[in-house]
Design a protein around this nucleic acid. Sequence first.
DNA 1: ACCTGAACACCGTTCAAGT
DNA 2: ACCTGAACACCGTTCAAGT
Lengths: 220, 220
Amino acid sequence: MAKKSLSSGRREESLSQERIIEASIELLDSSGESGLTFRALAERLATGPGAIYWHIDNKTDLLTAACDAIIARTMQESRSGDTAKQSIRAVALGIFDAIDAHPWVGSALTHAPGQLPVVRILERIGQQVRAMGVPADKQWATVSALLNYILGVSGQNAANTHMARTRGLDRANFLGAIANDWSQLDPVEYPFTRSIAGQLPIHDDRLDFVAGIDLILDGL
Amino acid sequence: MAKKSLSSGRREESLSQERIIEASIELLDSSGESGLTFRALAERLATGPGAIYWHIDNKTDLLTAACDAIIARTMQESRSGDTAKQSIRAVALGIFDAIDAHPWVGSALTHAPGQLPVVRILERIGQQVRAMGVPADKQWATVSALLNYILGVSGQNAANTHMARTRGLDRANFLGAIANDWSQLDPVEYPFTRSIAGQLPIHDDRLDFVAGIDLILDGL
DNA sequence: ACCTGAACACCGTTCAAGT
DNA sequence: ACCTGAACACCGTTCAAGT
């Protein structure tokens, strides 16, 4: 008997960087960072682990490439904004939302300094900072403050959702558990943390994120 | 023949959390994040991998505990500062330097949201923000902006030194290599990144870091 | 109570051998 | 040129067995 075309949704194409990256993203989204293994990837692509190495150098590169695919999409979608400030806000929020949806992108960005995905963000922000008329000798400091803030908050946010998923909780319950820990800290040593514990589960991270961006933009 | 007391610097004490954490820090400092394994740790402590599990629950906890030891020390050392602003600058710089000396602390902080090491920093900044007279309803946003910025920059900085070490380069050479990549980007798509490439290897990260802190503080 | 060390169930990566 | 899949050198973690 000849093999029927029992394609399960997808045609039988040969392996390629794109197909590998696409499958990696699916795996990362569904099973998190630890879900991306060459064996799981090989099974999903109906091949052996060795085949993947023909198209990709190592796991680090694979993760950076998957991260770049998400960031590239995000940058294309967040082109809106009439003024430079609005454009910066739009990029920042785009990244925030992308990392919220794909937590693994947060740590991938942190572990690939100076690489393509980070450069895409850097460039976009840099062009807007220039458009705002920031003098040349202050552009670097401004852009790097913004970039670091964006990557920092998004990374922390991703860590939260990732930890929550790891423990099988939703975000609210996870933050609630931390708030509970905080409220039981020593009142003498940790007065501030205790006092804001209640705000942790209810406050809007996204709103505070934009507030921080504005804080930096206004400081110029 | 009876065993002589061939102690190599350290008395033969029984295993304990402190000794394990101390050995972990030494291992992390000398061989990086990938150098911390239960087998290497067991060898350094002259015991078996299983023994460590009697004192520590798992590797994640071990890393957080090692991170906390460094942060606790750092917080004690950076108590200086006459005004609240100066105090915040002092803590920020203390953390920056600590993470520069122990790059693994950067990613450990990122992966332990809401845990003790982060809370130590949060508390210190929170108390100073209060002392500055920031109104209660804006304290959270202010503190979280500062905290995220500090963790973000320090994390990126740690990633740089870590990547440099991984490739056997010093920091300057590593940044030089990235600058070289940047200067070869498409001039139409990446004008800004190209234009600042030259500044990457020579600019002072520490200085820009404080500049960013001031930017946020001034925005209040 | 605390330690030992073999064993389990994984990893990323390589490489001879196939087509 | 591209793929296969066994093999290598590791991991974190567990657990019966010892003291």
